[in-house]
Amino acid sequence: MRETILKTTGLTKRYKKFTALDSADMTVYSGDIYGLIGRNGAGKTTFMKVITDLTDQTSGEYELFGKKSSDTAGEKRRIGCLIENPAFFGNMTAWQNLRYYCYQKGITDLKQIDRALELVQLTEVRNKKFRKFSLGMKQRLGIAFALLDNPDLVILDEPINGLDPIGISELRETFLKLNKEQGITFIISSHILSELYAVANRFMFINNGKVLKEISKEELDLECSRCIVVKTSDTKKAVTVLEQELGVSSYKVTSSSEIRIYSDEAAPDIINQKLVGAGVPVSGIYESGVSLEDYFKTLIGEVSE
């Protein structure tokens, strides 16, 4: 069983009457690339601020590396963070800024600075002052800071903001490589679904401070892939008919009244005919299949209603 890196229980953050985070429950396991998906203002940054101790939760608990939220100070060096916009000292160069944090963290191997800068392709501008950096370069330095000192957990808030398409692709490869080769766990937030989908293996959908769904990539693929949805009050009997009379093997009973069929072995009209013929009450049958975007929209819609 994989080690639990982060576990939150009923994590809530209120600013006066506004609830920015509402009873968030989630678990991140070692080796995960955990994607936090939500619209602007959904509560992603608040969530990250709470678990990184930048703000206190109003109620609820979280455990980081198995330690309660009140006792995580000793674990900070295991975490690399980029929350909101990258912030560094404008009068210092990229290298000097990272050197400053090496002092703070007690890192004596200064090769780590060069290694971090290399990972984000900033080696050539290591001696350029931060204030002269472009938005994309600032973002890269923020990521380099998060990757300094080989952390066990890297938390990145909208890391691809300001990056060009090639930069995004390079960073994606870097994250995947670090995850695979060094086992670094990532929590990455974004409102760009396709980008998160390309790197993450687990997802949390969040809207208006509420966690809508926590789902693995496989489950997400399954929910988004093309299928035939059968609505019936007798799923047990329907499954028997599908297997025995139609030879359908790729399906999933998604609720007490819904079956999703993922194979092309039978057309909807044939399925309907067979089910009705066998006395299965069918209240609906239709083809489904959504893009990630539509899937997210549906999730938000479901909650809003």
């Binding site: 930048l54 900070k76 975490i79 963070c81 912030a87 963290k105 938390i155």
Partner: peptide, 21 residues
């Protein structure tokens, strides 16, 4: 003051130490 104006304080608080220290 510069730590607050440049917002670098959050770097230290998230990855190095807690507020009291």
């Amino acid at each position: 003051s510069v730590e607050f104006s440049e917002k670098t304080v959050k770097n230290t608080l998230t990855s190095v130490t807690d507020k009291s220290r």
